[in-house]
Design a protein around this nucleic acid. Structure first.
Lengths: 338, 338
DNA sequence: TTGAAAGCGCTAACAC
DNA sequence: GTGTTAGCGCTTTCAA
């Protein structure tokens, strides 16, 4: 900037004004400065700008795994909003490790991001306290912050969605409905189970623990659990799967267990079992799978807009936003009990 | 840092040494400094560190779209390697716009990232010249840099993979094989078509332009093209689809066009049409779709490792790495001609 | 083993 | 409309 100023025969500050498009610079002077900039190939150093102004024009996003379609859709939406606000985006995957979540968040904070969007893996966010005191803002997405941490959160209507899924099957005449969910350590998994139970209770159906299996996504375990369920004296006639990955893995397991070839569409499906998946996934339409769809794009957008609201001075108590779900019937959830 | 130094009764520089784990600090002194750090809740400001030292310990990744499974897998691999090298990752999606690609890259450069991994949308990378001169390193992934830009690139074996796909169908007895690809403005689409043509030529089969449709991913266009192909006097007996999105959209179109219910597995499939898709996608196994799989994770890892090699002083001429493909037979590609 | 001083490239605050 | 000065928080260099 110094060199540019010298080349243009003006003061440093004038160059700064031109570069930042501040008003109050003579057009002719600005022209000379621009010429000098082009001549010298000058580009502003944002690190210095950041250091001086205190704002980095960047935000950090911590998710579970970029390669998971749910989170990558969320990422895209966040990226979109960030760019519209002139901010750049740091991304990191926690891989469901509280340790990594913390490291990533703190690394972003050390870079002095203006704000954070966090899909928390851990339950304790006390480590954010000093950052909050420093003025960093955070919005939690998909899962709430740990107890004692006052921060905005954007959540899916997990209970309502799961209730809808189960109620849909109940309305179709099913009485024995199995629930295959993620590990109960995960917030969304617990909430969805709650919704499932609520639907059963509303229908006056008993809650049978033998029809519930929850655990980390391990195809082998899932297949074993499913085989056990189906071999029982009184097997389920329908399944509710707790997220996109579980739905696909369940289909794989069923295909492996099924004697007859698997068929697409609204035909008798997978040995007559009905299925409703929580969370939509790419070719669920081709597979004829009924789902309760989430809206990761909307979740990301909502979280990002909430964050930028905070960054532009919106104070006030922590907010909770809830993103609705939508039942999409495609055949598998409309099969009558065998 | 000043405050910490005062609290610990040492000089600023000593705090710096402790924070950076530089050798040559008395254990007792370090202890006092640590105590002061904890007491004051001090965290280093990386912006200032960056400004002074000139290294940001961050890299920028520009891809086409985070929400595309191919690129999100690539992202995850890059992220993994970056973290292992103690670097943070800026991510941005160009959305196939050369304009946006350029803006993102330059924004990352203004942040003084140490290096870049770019999936280029544009053909002209002259704008990188001054950045290269400044010491920024770039590795291109999935597509090569525009002419005149000397930079490393990690590419998929597009020609070989497409040749394998078509040759596989030829070996199965097919003589009329349609190719449904992405817009010819895209490098990979052109290369894959080349591979397809090479396989036809090697089999002594004619190249029929009427069996090729290329264009941006638009389901309606694809369906119209497919309807036209199938209604022709001499329709194809097999299809090669040019990427994951096209494969799924082709299946959708076929399902819409098909009078009979669509079936999965090795059964007569989609009116007897055989299909090999370029690029694997999540439940292709469930759908029984034969594919030539790419390896986005390996591509991302290779690109990132190449970049970090450069960052640690590896000079020398620009390199090209090629990531192999793998044919995965699942039924749809093994159907005989109708 | 520790410290003092200079300065990275920029913007804020205030002259003129 | 333009310039001057100070200083953001750190690392580098050199001295003790």
């Amino acid at each position: 900037m110094n060199d540019v100023a010298a080349a243009a025969g003006v003061a440093l500050k004038t160059v700064s004004r031109v570069v930042n498009q501040e008003p109050g610079v003579n057009a002719a002077t600005a022209e000379r400065v621009h010429a000098a900039i082009d001549l010298l190939g000058y580009r502003r150093n944002d690190s210095a700008r950041t250091l001086r102004s205190g704002r980095t024009a960047s935000i950090g996003l911590v998710i579970e795994d970029v390669a998971d379609p749910f989170y990558s859709s969320l990422s895209r939406a966040v990226e979109e909003v960030a760019l519209r606000h002139g901010h750049l985006l740091f991304t990191g995957s926690s891989r469901e490790s509280p340790e990594r979540e913390r490291e990533l968040v703190l690394a972003f904070c050390a870079r002095r991001v203006d704000g954070l969007i966090i899909v928390p893996a851990g339950q304790d966010h006390g480590y954010l306290e000093p950052e909050f005191a420093d003025g960093i803002r955070a919005v939690f997405a998909d899962r709430p912050p740990g107890a004692g941490c006052e921060a905005d959160a954007v959540l899916c209507d997990n209970v309502g969605g799961a209730r809808t899924a189960t109620a849909h099957l109940v309305a179709g005449g099913h009485r024995r409905i199995a629930f295959l969910g993620d590990s109960p350590t995960i917030f969304t998994a617990r909430e969805r189970l709650r919704g499932h139970r609520a639907a059963l209770a509303e229908a006056g159906l008993p809650y049978d623990e033998g029809l519930v299996t929850m655990g980390p996504p391990d195809p082998d375990r899932l297949r074993a659990d499913l085989a056990r369920l189906l071999a029982a004296a009184d097997p389920p006639t329908a399944l509710v799967t707790g997220n996109g990955r579980f739905t696909v893995d369940t289909l794989r397991a069923l295909a492996a267990l099924s004697p007859a070839p698997v068929r697409l569409g609204a035909e008798p499906y997978l040995g007559g079992l009905a299925l409703v998946g929580f969370d939509d996934f790419e070719p669920a339409d081709l597979l004829g799978i009924t789902v309760v769809a989430q809206d990761p794009g909307r979740m990301g957008r909502t979280a990002a807009e909430l964050l930028f609201g905070r960054l532009s001075g919106d104070e006030g108590p922590a907010r909770r936003a809830e993103v609705p779900t939508r039942l999409i019937p495609r055949g598998s959830g409309e099969l009558p009990p065998a």
